[in-house]
Design a protein around this nucleic acid. Structure first.
Lengths: 333, 333
DNA sequence: GGCATTTAAGCAAACGTTTGCCTAATGTCA
DNA sequence: TGACATTAGGCAAACGTTTGCTTAAATGCC
């Protein structure tokens, strides 16, 4: 691999000059520019980014910490980040916390060691670490997780609104026995916000919150399956179920087929995320859309802004979800 | 951020010694080791990997070039790579070619500039570049793509065998009108191998290859949908369809529901990949399993071996696919 | 006790850039 | 013509490590 010195020698100038030609950081006479560029071409020289990083203390690399990748929700967001990053000449190092706080912590340290210019965190397990993260010397952006007054820079879907829209839709279709598949966790988690929005819509419409109509579970598709079965076996089953993610709802749809319950004729179902698959399930899934790809793009755009202008104050950006009505919801019989 | 010099000063030794303590590269007296470690702890010192990379010419980072991420097939493989890499203290920079040869090329150059120790290519669009890639100064591993006698180091599922197994299954169930959703491309592409295997099974069993029973399409789910519709509208529709990927088969299943064709009663369907979703479609999809996660793990393991031992000769590793029988295939009526 | 050997650790160059400071040559103006 | 300003580009330090070479002190041996 040719270095800047090889280029300098070949062009008969100092390597300072070569550097300035490459970076256009000061005037160099036309003649010299030509000779340098010729040498660069002939030697197929490309600047060593590692050396540049060491000197300039910027790596044109950002770290992305995701919890997992197998849920298309995460991978689509990641794709948005990568795309935008590429356009600005940045690369991304991705780490998966695998829902393990230990690995999450370890990963962040590895990223810092590698000299990333910023970190996007799409997985937050150990909230006690937020103050450390917020005070890192590099910009940190949180995706889909926000803690009030924490100084976090965050981009979130308005999950509360999303849950609200879902419940509202059920209500407008005449449902009153409305169940919900939820999960444990504190209210900062995005899925908790969805549930809170759901509760609000019920309250607003004078529908009592029946504790039996709430199941707390995890995020696995199979949990959605089991929850659906449980609900439908109740003495007075709900006529509508809100799953906090499509992934769970897909499990529910499969369960319905297995136990011969017709969706939406007997039970209406709504998911959340609008995964690509929702258009292909049988029946097609009514769900709350969130712009996963754009969310990724926005995340990079924001972090890029903060890299350029280190004085920017942290802020929370909310993006609007949208109800997408398909075939899994229906007016109550 | 503390540097090695800060540690040295605090511990009252030269920074050479600190380096040796950290890397255990030569004997240091017990007493000094203790002092150094104490200083490291107190300053929360972590070695700067960028500087280390510049000096040692190794970055503990590998590049992964994938075509896209949204198909769970890619993301699962990527997860396997990441997991194994993490365990060895490596990070991965991921790039998506987005099926664009220009971006593919550009990405590889960015990766080299960043000083990655190796590259895993899970996306090969421009085969003319293989000689360049094979001769890079760093190890390059190809995933799911192999060209005979090209000197490629590769790990591939035995796609030919997979296609063969799929067709064999249909034949054993008494089907003779066996169709196939394929795609254009040269025979080095993995999906082409699947089709070749499928053809072989038909040939071996004296089943004529009906050109009308082959549709060449792309990889989008919707193409699977359309293909299914086309097949079922034929004068003599096939009784069995092999889709070269689950993604397509899922489209087919949705089409069947829309046009009221019963799978498997009227038409049996097989996919390829064994995506997680196959367990949740209605009906559950019979498919050819390939170990996506392990494939990723194997890929890192192999590339790691080659990083350690640069004399290793390129080789092709084949992993066995497996037929997974679920609900979408049935004995011919 | 004197010399050779071993031991423990320091010095400084190198990795490939960027950039503050300096300088030689040229131009400008009275 | 002399003083000064401007122009074009070179020198060398710095970024934070690793590592070959060196050295002072301690030890071993006869």
């Amino acid at each position: 691999m040719a270095t800047i010195k090889d280029v300098a020698k070949k062009a008969g100038v100092s390597y300072t000059t070569v550097s300035h030609v490459i970076n256009e950081t000061r005037f160099v006479s036309e003649d010299v520019v030509k000779r340098v560029n010729k040498a660069i071409r002939e030697l197929k020289y490309r600047p060593n980014q590692v050396a540049r990083c060491l000197r300039k203390q910027e790596s044109k690399t950002i770290g992305v910490l995701s919890s997992i990748n197998v849920n298309p929700y995460f991978s689509e967001t990641l794709t948005g980040i990568e795309k935008k990053a590429y356009l600005e000449g940045y690369n991304i190092i991705v780490c998966y916390s695998e829902c393990n706080p230990e690995k999450e912590k370890e990963n962040i340290e590895m990223l810092l060691d590698k000299g990333v210019d910023a970190v996007i965190i799409h997985s937050l397990l150990d909230e006690t670490r937020v103050p450390n993260l917020v005070n890192l010397e590099i910009p940190v952006l949180f995706l889909q997780h926000y803690i009030e007054d924490s100084g976090m820079d965050a981009i979130c879907t308005d999950d509360f609104m999303g849950g609200y829209l879902a419940a509202k839709h059920f209500i407008e279709l005449g449902h009153t026995k409305i169940a919900c598949v939820s999960a444990e966790g504190n209210d900062n988690f995005s899925y908790r916000q969805r549930i809170k929005g759901w509760e609000k819509a019920l309250n607003e419409n004078g529908i009592e919150l029946n504790k039996d109509y709430i199941i707390e579970t995890d995020f696995h598709t199979h949990a959605g399956y089991d929850s659906f079965v449980k609900f439908s076996k109740m003495k007075v089953p709900p006529t509508a179920i809100f799953f906090y993610s499509d992934n769970l709802a897909i499990g529910g749809i499969r369960a319905a087929a297995d136990i011969n319950i017709a969706i939406p004729d007997q039970i209406s179902v709504i998911g959340f995320d609008d995964l690509f698959m929702c258009q292909y399930t049988v029946p097609r899934l009514t769900t709350v859309y969130q712009p996963k790809f754009s969310l990724g793009e926005m995340a990079f755009a924001r972090i890029f802004e903060r890299i350029k202008d280190r004085e920017l104050k942290p802020q929370k950006q909310l993006v609007e979800p949208k109800l997408v009505i398909r075939e899994s919801t229906k007016r109550r019989a």
